[in-house]
Design a binder for these strands. Structure first.
Length: 598
RNA sequence: GCGCCCGUAGCUCAGCUGGAUAGAGCGUCGGCCUUCGAAGCCGAAUGUCGUAAGUUCGAAUCUUACCGGGCGCGCCA
């Protein structure tokens, strides 16, 4: 049980017995037991205690007594409590609480016991969720803008998994229809030395692709169909050795994103799943023929102003038809919930998707669209229009590579880009200034967080060098020497991880994890620097005396080393949820060193 | 016209399932390295929370209207 839960339970119990004693009048006993909306939270200001509750204020109405009267009774009843050491009334009726140190020690013991499992659901027995994301048009590389989809979607997946869900990550390959024909035509034109068609694809990547295919995959040119299929295959896997044609799958992998299932739109048509899904809607009376075309008529919970075409009057299916088939296909595979990550310009599709989902016979609340806002690429203060057709886009590979070089660490670019996107809510738009990307990357808070983790590791490493064991199981009496308010306050922060994960998963808000770990890093780095005069480990000067270990308080060192390890556990879990590395050491980038010597 | 998203410090953004004196990073100014990592720490300055009403003991947070910015309303994909 978390610290917050323990405190909550203690308060609830005291309140219930006060009510039973008639302190809150006739309505007391039932009112107190019915009240659930009150909170136990860490106050903004440290002098307000370890935790505070608003229970007295929320009970006022139901009980018919002023907040301070309720609070006074509660404070009195809490005297001698095993969890709460002291309580006092503050402000309009808050009850500020201070806890016994043993409560923190128990939490640390639990963190060390559970390790990586701390804060996570005990087992993956929750919903089976199909999470579709990225699904970028496969006729071009992954851009920095698409990387937002990839990173947001992937991190939602990580957080949901930590909360117990079983998540399948899925990519929908739109390899059907007009854009694919144009793509094939563009490849053929380039390989024939002809100009690409008016609406075709241009740019270095497709030239490289065409040149490569001409030399290595001549059979692909037999027909337009083989050409488009092979071309998309190479888009996914990449051109060997190429920097401009890294391949969608590898680009995603470099972002720390890996999909479990790749579904082709073309295969949905070829296998007849589109026809089957429409037949099902037909039976339900959801289709209507008008002007030679077939329309989906939504009758679901979402209001829609008009009917949507599924089969055009020329006999071709509209894109929406394969969307419907794809939804049916996913649910036929046995998921409890279907989620799709889409850019905000798709918000108009949500009602028709939901109605189609409902028309297929599924509860609409089991379908979710997670929307995220645009990424605007900015160069010298001006927004740059990116387009695959024009070929003037910035790929995530470019950005990652540049940051890797600037920091001198492979993986730093991925970490910086992930943290950059995860440091804001999904529904705010982002400016990505590519000229500043390199410089700004060195200021990326992710490195600050990682530095904190490296410092923790450094303490443990140093302890090992000194021959001091870092224990992971201490007895209650051994823990007592861990008593500094700073260490206990950080422990309070550590204890928030389980609720944080649950909240981030429920709200589909991975940015909460990014802000949490940043706050944790700040707490720790501040503590670490301020306590230099009271080091965890004996310094060289302390060990000059050969008898030093007789006077040194080794109990305190051991308790603090255990605390360091628990802090590291929480750091690592948070970083893992963000898909960010937790390096054990960080070397100062070359640029920063030269700045220093100037 | 209708619908969705956004508007919080000089800049970029948290806080929005209502709580105490509205926070962080960057930037600015002033301090701190002989000792567990200075990619660090400490301190200072900076706000009509877009505007106006309403609900409430209490509103950045909920409701309504308005203002400003973005996006969506195809037999396109």
């Amino acid at each position: 049980m978390s610290i917050g839960d323990k405190v909550r339970r203690a308060i609830a119990r005291r309140l219930a017995s006060l009510a039973d004693d008639g302190v809150f009048g006739e309505a007391g006993p039932s009112a107190v037991r019915a009240a659930t909306s009150w909170t136990v939270e860490r106050p903004k200001r440290a002098e307000h205690g370890d935790l505070a509750t608003n229970v007295a204020m929320t009970l006022t109405k139901a009980v018919g007594k002023p907040p301070r009267v309720i609070a006074e009774a509660l404070v009195k009843a809490l005297e001698g409590d095993a969890v709460i050491a002291s309580a006092e009334i503050a402000g309009p009726g808050f009850v500020n609480l201070r806890l016994h140190p043993s409560v923190f020690h128990e939490e640390l013991a639990e963190i060390l016991l559970k390790g990586r499992g701390y804060g996570r659901a005990p087992s993956a027995t929750g919903e089976r969720i199909n999470l579709e994301f990225v699904s970028a048009n496969p006729v071009g590389p992954i851009t920095v803008a698409a990387a937002r989809n990839a990173i947001f979607g992937d991190t939602v997946g990580r957080v949901l998994e930590a909360a117990g869900a079983r998540v399948t990550r899925e990519y929908y390959i739109n390899d059907f229809g007009n854009q694919v024909r144009l793509f094939a035509a563009s490849i053929r034109a380039i390989s024939d030395g002809q100009p690409v068609p008016e609406e075709g694809y241009k740019g270095a990547y497709i030239e490289e692709l065409a040149t490569f295919m001409k030399a290595n995959d001549p059979k692909a040119f037999e027909s337009e169909e083989t050409l488009s299929r092979a071309g998309i295959g190479w888009m996914l896997s990449g051109v060997p050795g190429s920097k401009t044609m890294v391949g969608i799958q590898r680009s995603l992998s470099l972002l720390g994103v890996d999909h479990d299932v790749w579904t082709n739109e073309e295969a949905l048509h070829r296998s007849g799943k589109v026809g089957m899904a429409l037949a099902k809607l037909e039976r339900g009376g959801y289709l209507e023929k008008k002007d030679g075309a077939l329309f989906f008529v939504g009758k679901g919970t979402e209001s829609e102003d008009k009917d949507r075409v599924v089969q055009k009057s020329d006999g071709n299916y509209a894109y929406f038809a394969s969307d419907i088939a794809y939804l049916a296909d996913k649910m036929n595979r046995g998921y409890d919930r279907v989620m799709i990550v889409l850019a905000i310009d798709h918000h108009g599709y949500v009602p028709r998707f939901k109605n189609a989902f409902e028309a297929l016979g599924y509860p609409p609340e089991k379908f979710e669209v997670l929307l995220y806002n645009f990424v605007y690429i900015v160069r010298n203060g001006e927004v740059v229009k990116m387009g695959k057709r024009a070929g003037n886009f910035v790929t995530s590979d470019d950005v990652i590579e540049e940051i890797d070089e600037a920091t001198g660490r492979v993986g730093a670019g991925k970490d910086a880009l992930r943290f950059f996107y995860l440091s804001r809510t999904a529904n705010v738009k982002v400016d990505f200034d590519i000229e500043l990307a390199k410089k700004a990357s060195l200021d990326n808070p992710v490195f600050y967080v990682q530095y904190g983790h490296a410092r923790l590791c450094s303490i443990l490493k140093k302890a090992a060098e000194l021959g001091i064991e870092s224990p992971t199981d201490l007895s209650p009496s051994e823990w007592t020497s861990l008593a500094s308010p700073d260490e206990l306050a950080i422990t309070m922060r550590l204890s928030e991880l389980p609720a944080l994960i649950a909240g981030a998963a429920e709200m589909r808000e991975p940015h909460r994890v990014a802000f949490y770990v940043q706050e944790l890093a700040k707490d720790f780095q501040s503590y670490f620097t301020r306590f230099k005069a009271d080091p965890i480990l004996p310094r060289d000067s302390d060990r000059k005396d050969p008898e030093w270990n007789k006077t040194w308080d080794m109990n305190k060192t051991r308790a603090r080393l255990a605390w360091v390890q628990a802090t590291r556990v929480v750091y690592r879990t948070a970083l893992e949820l963000l898909g960010v590395d937790a390096p054990e050491r960080m070397d100062k980038p070359a640029d920063a060193e030269s700045d220093e010597s100037e």
